[in-house]
Every structure is written in structure tokens, then in C-alpha cells.
């Protein structure tokens, strides 16, 4: 089950403060990068939910994000539905698609589950790529952003949009924590550790897997609908398997099963990508070598390494502090 430690709270506060300062002070380019980080963070949260807490390593989350983006684009531009409703619709559609994938894939494990999700993701990719209704490989443009002028917020301004995404990422994180702490989330972790025992306890294993996969898909679809609004243009490339692969790399670099780690990974990944791209066009080489080094080091990503190194020490120091205050209280009471 997911638990907050002192280290995780510290990292969350640092991340939030960093993102907020960036959102208030940065120029146009900085804001674009920040929004990119926030949306990637939302996607990897969804992936970490299923991969880190359910052992379901998915290679279709990029495609799910793309489904959300396309659903939002179709609902707003072709069906003429108001953006907030379309956003809800996109989340529902993606969630339903993910639930079906989760239900079908629930029987397979390990490499077979990876292949099954890859197959579904590529199916969506090829279909969108070929279908003229979805604009084929030209993609679709002219996607509107949500209108919040009633609240006096203009989302077409990149600063407001970045702050909007930051707030939504915070809400999504809260939702992910709630899901993982609920009975459903606990059952999922049980299934990951020992599926047979959970079945023997009377749990319908495939329902648990499908439900969490559906919820994770809703988050991915949400991220997709937001990224469609961010770029205001979508192309089938969004659904390709390399997007899912990159999301998986981010989760691993950050720290699988920590929720906080993948968000740090998202920030590190996007910043690294831009910094390295400035210096050399061979940024894949850097990411590849980094990924190999992280996996070979046997640490659980950046955040997992920090937790293993300093987490225990921090906890001990904090518990020492609280014990000392407790002791003082006792003496003063006496």
C-alpha cells in the first residue's frame, strides 16, 4: 500500500514550490517546458499506479493518452460539444477503453502482458493513422482550450494554462493516492504479491485489475485531453509505442512504485531532453546509457536511491525529535 513518508512529503513540497515558482517567474519557453513536464508527470502517475502497485507493466499508456487527446479533439471540433463536457467525455471514453484492455489482459503476466498492451496500443495507433475521419497522418488542429473567463482566467495565456495544469496535477496526485489507499488499491497490491492467495480469499482478481487499469486509463486520458489543449494540435504520433516506452523509462528513472519518484523523473527527463538537445542531437544515446546505468545499479531509480540512502536516516531523526518532545511533555505534566 502507498504510504507517505517524511522524505516523500519533503520531495512533494519541493516539487510543488519549484513548479509554482517556475510558473510565476518563467518566460514563454520556460512555461512551455513546465507544462510539458506537468502533463508527462500526470501520465507517469497513471502508469506507476498499475506498474508499481499492480505489477501490470503497460506499453499502451501512451496510446491511452492519445485516445484521450483524440476523443477531446473529436468531441469539440467535430461534434461541437462544449470543452468541459468534452473533457469529461474524453476521460470516460479512455477509461472505458483501458478497462476493456485491463479485463482482457488480466489473464496474462510478465512479458505476455507487456505484449498484449503493446498490441492494443499499436492497434489504436494504426487505426487512427489510417482512418481519414481522424485526419490520418496529418493529424487534427484547431482544438479549443477550456474557457474559464467566468472565473476571470484566460487559459489561452500560457502562464494561466501552466498554473491550471499544476492545480490539476495536484488533484490527480490526490486522487491516485486515494485510489491506492482504498480497498481496491490494497487488493491490487495483494494481487501483485500473491495472486493465488488473493483468489483463494475470494477476490475476483480480473475485476480488480480491470478496475484499476480503467482508473489509470482515466488519468492517462485526462493528461491526453489536456495535452491536446496545450499544443492545440494532435497527430497519430501521440499514440505510438515509443511514447509508452518513454513513459516507462521515466517511471523507472524516477522510481517505480513511489508515485513521487516518477514525477521527479518526468521533470528530470524533460529538462535533460532540452538541455542535451541544445548541445548535441544524440540525446537518445545519453538517455540509453543513463537508463542502462540506473537499471544495472539495481537502485529503484533516482528517488528510490535517495530513499534507500537518506530515507531511513530522516525517519530516525524525525522520530527522535518527536520522542524528545513527548518526553518533555511528560516531564512538564509531572
Amino acid at each position: 500500500m502507498f504510504q507517505h513518508t517524511a522524505l516523500r512529503y519533503t520531495a512533494l513540497i519541493l516539487l510543488a514550490v519549484g513548479a509554482f515558482t517556475q510558473a510565476v517567474t518563467a518566460g514563454y519557453f520556460g512555461l512551455e517546458i513546465l507544462t510539458e513536464i506537468l502533463l508527462l508527470a500526470m501520465l507517469v502517475l497513471a502508469l506507476d499506479m498499475v506498474a508499481g502497485f499492480g505489477g501490470m507493466v503497460s506499453l499502451c499508456h501512451g496510446a491511452l493518452m492519445g485516445v484521450g487527446a483524440y476523443a477531446y479533439a473529436i468531441l469539440t471540433t467535430k461534434a461541437g460539444i462544449a470543452p468541459p463536457v468534452a473533457l469529461g467525455g474524453a476521460i470516460a471514453i479512455t477509461g472505458a477503453a483501458a478497462w476493456v484492455i485491463g479485463a482482457i489482459g488480466a489473464r496474462s503476466h510478465g512479458i505476455y502482458f507487456i505484449m498484449a498492451t503493446l498490441a492494443f496500443g499499436q492497434m489504436a495507433y494504426s487505426y487512427v493513422f489510417e482512418a481519414p475521419f481522424f485526419g490520418g497522418d496529418d493529424g487534427m488542429g484547431g482544438i479549443p482550450r477550456i474557457d474559464l473567463s467566468l472565473l476571470g482566467i484566460d487559459l489561452n495565456d500560457s502562464r494561466s494554462f501552466a498554473l491550471f495544469c499544476l492545480v490539476l496535477l495536484g488533484a490527480t496526485y490526490g486522487a491516485a493516492v486515494l485510489i491506492l489507499r482504498s480497498g481496491l488499491g490494497r487488493s491490487l497490491t495483494g494481487v501483485m504479491h500473491n495472486e493465488q492467495r488473493m483468489r483463494a480469499l475470494g477476490l475476483t482478481v480480473w475485476r480488480v485489475k480491470a478496475d484499476v487499469f480503467g482508473l489509470s486509463g482515466m488519468i492517462a486520458g485526462f493528461a491526453g485531453a489536456l495535452s491536446a489543449q496545450h499544443v492545440m494540435y494532435i497527430s497519430p504520433g501521440l499514440l505510438g509505442w515509443t511514447v509508452s516506452g518513454e513513459a516507462l523509462v521515466v517511471v523507472i528513472l524516477g522510481g517505480l512504485g513511489t508515485l513521487v519518484g516518477p514525477m521527479i523523473g518526468a521533470a528530470a527527463f524533460v529538462i535533460l531532453k532540452h538541455e542535451v538537445s541544445n548541445v548535441t542531437s544524440y540525446w537518445h544515446l545519453v538517455v540509453g546509457v543513463l537508463l542502462i546505468a540506473v537499471v544495472m545499479s539495481r537502485a529503484n531509480g533516482i528517488f528510490g536511491w535517495i530513499e534507500a540512502r537518506w530515507g531511513a536516516r530522516l525517519e530516525r531523526r524525525l522520530s527522535d525529535l518527536t520522542r524528545k518532545t513527548d518526553a518533555e511533555e511528560i516531564t512538564t505534566d509531572a
Partner: peptide
């Protein structure tokens, strides 16, 4: 899977 994925990039 991940190490060989990194190898693809490299």
C-alpha cells in the same frame, strides 16, 4: 527489458 530498451536508444 529495460536494459535492452536502453541499448536500443544507444
Amino acid at each position: 527489458v529495460l536494459v535492452t530498451f536502453g541499448l536500443i536508444f544507444a
